[in-house]
């Protein structure tokens, strides 16, 4: 508990630092390309078109039922995909954030727990830009902004909490054992297929399997995003048990991550 408060306090005290550092992070990543930061948008756009082609035309492109309303497959995919790409990229980057930056940062008294967070933030800007593009796009399809859209702020915050808690654990573990990062790298992709991004998990039909898939906190966020942007219902209240489960899980992950981080952070440099 003490470690968790310490980590939380470091985030709040250094919020200015996180914001500034994340901008430099974004800058230095795209310095070598002529199109610069635009690639952060082009890359996911190409990916989503591929998935749309494969899953939309080859499988079936029937509209999908979201809370009683039928939504074109592309729209349904788009909303989940921008969230997925944000989660995927920032979890991978977050996992290697500490060991790849340690040599540069250890020369000064720098609050280590801030490192995964500013890496995540550098991805957040891109995500917000994609979100805005998506919302504008949705207007043309008739899914206009409504009172339900406000939920998006809640889900954005929840997503950040999830990514940060996970990164706190993985960044510590992969600094100590580099294989953890490789493992994450090769297994995280599975999440794209199992989190209900590409196909509605309801088509499985087996209720036990569905219940297991729903244990994945990402599924909660993806469904929440869809309900918020498609303006159909207050998902977080309608499924309050699920909301409770999600935050319980976040709390456990965050506590575990903080304890791990605080315990090992003094010795990170010895593992390099």
């Amino acid at each position: 508990m003490k470690s968790a408060i310490m980590v939380l306090k470091e985030q709040i005290d250094n919020f200015y630092l996180i914001r500034r550092l994340s901008l430099y992070e974004l800058k230095s990543q795209n310095k070598n390309n002529y199109l610069g930061i635009l690639w952060e948008i082009i890359n996911p756009t190409i990916q989503i078109l591929i998935y749309w082609f494969v899953f939309g035309t080859l499988r079936s492109s029937e509209p999908i039922n979201v809370n009683g309303e039928y939504v074109p497959f592309f729209i349904w995919l788009l909303i989940a995909f921008i969230l997925w790409i944000f989660f995927y990229q920032s979890t991978i980057e977050g996992s290697k954030s500490i060991y790849s930056r340690l040599l540069m940062l250890s020369k000064m008294n720098f609050p280590m727990s801030v490192i995964p967070n500013y890496v995540i933030f550098s991805k957040l800007y891109v995500h917000i830009a994609m979100l805005i593009i998506t919302i504008i796009f949705l207007q043309f399809y008739g899914f206009t902004i409504s009172i339900y859209s406000l939920q998006i702020f809640y889900y954005l915050f929840a997503t950040l909490c999830l990514i940060f808690s996970v990164s706190l654990i993985t960044s510590t573990l992969s600094t100590i054992i580099r294989d953890v990062h490789m493992f994450l790298n090769s297994t995280l992709r599975m999440g794209l297929y199992l989190s209900g991004v590409l196909w509605p998990i309801a088509i499985i039909g087996n209720s036990t399997v569905i219940a297991i898939l729903k244990l994945n906190p990402l599924y909660y966020l993806i469904e929440g995003y869809r309900h918020a942007l498609l303006g159909s219902s207050w998902y977080l209240i309608d499924h309050w048990q699920y909301t409770l489960y999600f935050w319980g899980l976040i709390l456990v992950l965050f506590l575990f991550g903080s304890i791990l981080h605080i315990k090992f952070r003094r010795h990170f440099i010895d593992y390099l």
Partner: peptide
């Protein structure tokens, strides 16, 4: 002060100065 004091290769000298000072608080 060490010879290989952490500087970021992709950023310019000026940006590195800003970044480093920022990290020093």
């Amino acid at each position: 002060i060490a010879v290989a004091a952490g500087l970021k290769g992709d950023l310019t000298g000026r940006e590195n100065i800003e970044l480093k000072l920022l990290m020093l608080g």
